[in-house]
Design a protein around this nucleic acid. Sequence first.
DNA 1: TCCTAACTATTAGGATACCTAAGTATGAAC
DNA 2: GTTCATACTTAGGTATCCTAATAGTTAGGA
Lengths: 147, 147
Amino acid sequence: MNTKNAPALHELAQDFREALRHSVYLVRRLDADGDLSAAQLSTLKMLLDDGVRVGEIARNLGVRVPSATEQIIKLERAGLARREADPDDSRAVRVVLTAEGRGAVESANQRRNAVMAGILESLTDDDRRALAAALPVIEKINSTLQN
Amino acid sequence: MNTKNAPALHELAQDFREALRHSVYLVRRLDADGDLSAAQLSTLKMLLDDGVRVGEIARNLGVRVPSATEQIIKLERAGLARREADPDDSRAVRVVLTAEGRGAVESANQRRNAVMAGILESLTDDDRRALAAALPVIEKINSTLQN
DNA sequence: TCCTAACTATTAGGATACCTAAGTATGAAC
DNA sequence: GTTCATACTTAGGTATCCTAATAGTTAGGA
């Protein structure tokens, strides 16, 4: 892999920023599709680990607690999630998926993945390899921001 | 580079989608900083080529024309852009940057790049190479969506 | 020529998702 | 047991996007 010099930091930063900015359109395309908004799907996905606190959800999504509450209330009204008392701490609320919510995550994921797969179809094998190699790096970057 | 098999399309699609979804937080971090919102900076950047039509801006940003108009009006009120009659077509409007607008793009870019560089600082050389190799692929993907 | 259809942009009205600030209830520390 | 911190909700406001309706301009065919 060490066949090229590592790129200069400030250039890489600028190019990566551009790429992310341009990807806004791609993300919109993926989310335009379904019956579940991007924010709601993200929130639902947090619940795949059962019994998550509101504050935890907010922190993982990178939003403030009231925004998380708002989404959860919507999901609850849609019958996709349920709020339960935390047995250990009466201040806290544990949010769980309903069966319907689990199905909604599943199908929304599949639909979006299909759209993305259609978009990536035209990539060459080299392109795919290059993209796949970068994804763990991007996840590494993102994971450093989680606090 | 051909040392691994190319990843399966549907897995790559899913992983890339995850990576983009997780990057929302990173993008928010970059944009939280400045005095110029993400939407406004994106719109301003479109104007670096002088005399761009409203419809062209909208198309390039991947939004509808009224949304572009809205941003342009804000930028105009802030003294960063100016709308001018198109000499060739009286229906059309050409939007141009003011000197102040040009400065604003410059400084907003620099600030965001500095934040991003700080975040990327901890990457290894291999990480940087992998990321840099994927950026043209991502741009290729994005460019296929521009219509 | 003139009429119609297509195009360009704006205005109006509404939805979503985020924010801060303030309020309620519970827990923990002394 | 008072006080401070924590967990969540409620209230109010802002930014960005959308669709539908409107006004003005251009272009093409009868």
